[in-house]
Write a protein that binds this DNA or RNA. Structure first.
Length: 271
DNA sequence: CTTTACGCCTGACGGC
DNA sequence: TGCCGTCAGGCGTAAA
């Protein structure tokens, strides 16, 4: 569930549940995640309280009294908040057990996600240094995108999914934002003017904020949901709609591949 | 430097 | 029913 809106929805869901809670112990069941904090580092979290729950790009940041734990959901990661007695299911790799009888549990069947431990704020470490601006920051506008795209030949869809350019855009919302902007995903990033990039920047924000709002409607179900709050309630225009009529002009939505990722677009509206 | 290809993992689905 | 290929919302690295 990995794009920015899903991670933000998780953040909003768990923040009120775990802020101020004290860690009793941690349980790591898998050592083969893409990234994994060491058992000894994780053990140091015992006794610490959750100070805040933050997000940067698609990373979820648990800020404890002394240390930080950074979670990435990969393609299939999810979190659950359950009573401590609940037995782990398949692919439940990590538990953060609190002293009030509840735990936060990380599940990831494909193990593309992972955990990172840090003694200092990740906002000042190399991990985040290379990330582009958050989509809702003032830095993201037409001039910014146009400047970085100058001379580049990669498809604009790959360009906006590059986390160094903008943080948090994944395959679904890249497709959707380009549809709203009337830009063909395969168009070379360097062959789009500042005006069209301004439109695109606005539509990126629009798509992401709609998705976050949709996620928000299911936050209160977080404790009992399957760990993917809000995800399926988002109305999509093109993603996964191959052969369906374009909501704007009625032409058939086409599917293609750009950079080994599936791409959907309206051949009539998007140029 | 930019761009492309691949690997990491498991599960779901469609065709035979 | 089972087997097999293909696909999946991400990202890091190697190679061209």
């Amino acid at each position: 569930m990995p794009e920015l809106p899903e991670v933000e929805t998780i953040r909003r869901g768990i923040k009120p549940l775990i802020t101020g809670k004290k860690v009793l112990r941690t349980v790591l069941r898998s050592s083969r995640l893409r990234w994994s904090a060491s058992v000894s580092d994780l053990a140091a979290l015992a006794g610490q309280e959750v100070v805040d729950v933050e997000r940067r790009a698609k990373y979820l940041i648990l800020h404890f009294s002394d240390d930080w734990l950074i979670l990435h959901m990969g393609m299939t990661g999810s979190l659950r908040y359950r009573p401590s007695g609940c037995p782990p299911a398949k692919h439940d790799h990590f538990d953060l057990v609190f002293d009030d009888g509840f735990l936060l549990r990380f599940r990831d069947p494909r193990k593309f996600g992972g955990l990172l431990f840090s003694h200092e704020s990740p906002f000042s470490t190399p991990l985040f240094a290379g990330l582009g601006p958050e989509p809702f920051s003032e830095q993201l506008d037409g001039h910014y995108l146009h400047g970085l795209a100058r001379g580049r030949k990669i498809p604009v869809k790959n360009f906006i999914m590059d986390q160094k350019i903008i943080a948090g855009i994944g395959n679904i919302y890249a497709n959707e934002a380009l549809f709203l902007s009337g830009i063909r995903p395969s168009r070379a990033a360097g062959r789009i003017g500042p005006g069209r990039y301004e439109v695109l920047a606005g539509n990126i924000r629009r798509v992401l904020s709609h998705a976050i709002e949709a996620g928000g409607t299911s936050i209160r179900d977080f404790q009992n949901s399957d760990g993917r709050p809000g995800y399926f309630s988002v109305q999509l225009n093109v993603y996964g709609k191959e052969g369906c009529p374009c909501p704007r002009c009625g032409a058939r939505i086409e599917a293609a591949r750009t950079g080994q990722r599936s791409t959907f677009f309206c051949p009539h509206c998007q140029r």
